[in-house]
Amino acid sequence: MHSTTTWRQRLSRWDVRFSPYLYISPFFIVFAVVGLYPLVYTAWVSVHDWHLIGGQGDFVGLQNFADVLQQPRFYNALRNTFSIFLLSSVPQVILAIFIAWMLDANLRAKTVWRMGVLLPYVVAPVAVSLIFSKLFADDSGLINTVLGQIGINPIGWHADSFASHVAIATMVNFRWTGYNTLIFLAAMQAVPRELYEAAVVDGANRFQQFFSVTLPSLRPTLIFVIITSTIGGLQIFDEPRMFDQLGQGGADRQWQTLTMYLYELGWGPQRSFGRASAVAWLLFLIIIVIGMFNFWLTSRISSSEGRRAKTRSKELV
């Protein structure tokens, strides 16, 4: 009897100690299979002379990285990626916060409006790209037709580099703004209503409440959205690839992104998986560096705003 009780106590201690790890183990198993393993395998491919047809070749070390960094098209794709990323992510976050603020107000049919905001996100990226590529057509597009009606010359959305970046960024904003809006809306609804009531007592109008109560409360969510937008924006592929029929990023590669350049290296005329993997790892490192910088910057801004809020509260007391 004594040994049975001891065994049960020991089993209970093991359950308390190891069961939490068993509960979270599915995430790490899935991450290891679909995330970590491809990352390590890509690093292995990047240091070999690996071709689509011939398969694994000789070990070349960092030669694939050196070859990629000597190619002008890599830097062209890098510039295009950052340009489209800035034109999409910055307005996207600002617009998402504004729409979430409007939806957080006392509107009629809130559920309908929230579903309407999310609808562009559930549409297939290929469908969105095909529709917007027709809207931004150089000769017969609806956008240029409307511009011509108000006396503005047609814009070469496919010929001009900056104009093509604006068009692609518009596609990205159309698809992802609603998703980020719902994230911000959930964060806004978690803000204690007592803070708004205190602001009303102090005589603050809606805009003053927004900048003094809402925005400071969104700091953690804002950091999350900025980081996820950075990761997604630097990996953009569907929208620029479907912007024209060839899918090469323009005649002069004026809107070719890093992921499109990676695809061209691996499945284009070169068929070099080694160089394509090198580009993938360079993109991964760029995302890590920019993500860490965004986290540091937003954390610094949020901490400074928090200190100012505490100072103002002490002065009011």
Rank of each mutant, 00 (worst) to 15 (best):
M115E: 07
A169E: 03
L118T: 10
D202T: 04
A187W: 01
Q9K: 13
S88P: 02
A204K: 11
P20W: 12
Q9L: 14
A66E: 12
A186Y: 13
G61F: 03
A105P: 02
I24C: 14
W255T: 01
F207R: 09
L118W: 09
I143K: 07
W176T: 03
H165C: 03
P216C: 08
L265C: 04
E239I: 07
V60D: 02
V289M: 10
V30C: 11
D252Q: 12
S129K: 06
L118P: 01
A169C: 03
G178S: 07
V201S: 12
T214G: 09
N80T: 09
H2R: 15
L265K: 03
E315L: 15
F18A: 12
F293S: 15
P154A: 13
I290H: 01
L195K: 04
T311Q: 14
Y179R: 10
I301R: 06
P269R: 09
L285S: 09
S313C: 12
P240Q: 05
V60K: 12
V289S: 05
D67E: 15
F74I: 06
L95S: 01
V112F: 15
P26L: 02
L86V: 13
T5Y: 05
S129W: 00
R114K: 15
F132N: 08
L258P: 03
S277E: 02
A309T: 11
P269W: 08
D202H: 07
V172N: 00
E194K: 11
P20S: 10
M115T: 08
V112N: 10
I152F: 13
L285K: 00
L87Q: 05
K310W: 06
R219Y: 12
Q189N: 12
G266A: 09
E264R: 11
H158P: 00
L107Y: 08
V191N: 00
A276V: 09
Q270A: 11
N144D: 04
G266C: 04
Q9G: 13
G249K: 02
M102H: 14
N153L: 06
I236Q: 00
S302H: 05
Q189Y: 13
I29V: 09
S3E: 15
V201I: 15
K314Y: 14
L195V: 06
I97Y: 01
S303C: 03
Y37I: 11
L297M: 15
A199I: 00
T145Y: 15
G233N: 04
Y121K: 13
P220K: 02
V45A: 08
S25M: 09
W101V: 04
V166F: 00
E197F: 06
W113H: 10
R114P: 07
F293W: 13
R108M: 08
G291P: 00
I29P: 00
D138F: 01
S304G: 06
S12L: 11
M171E: 02
A100V: 05
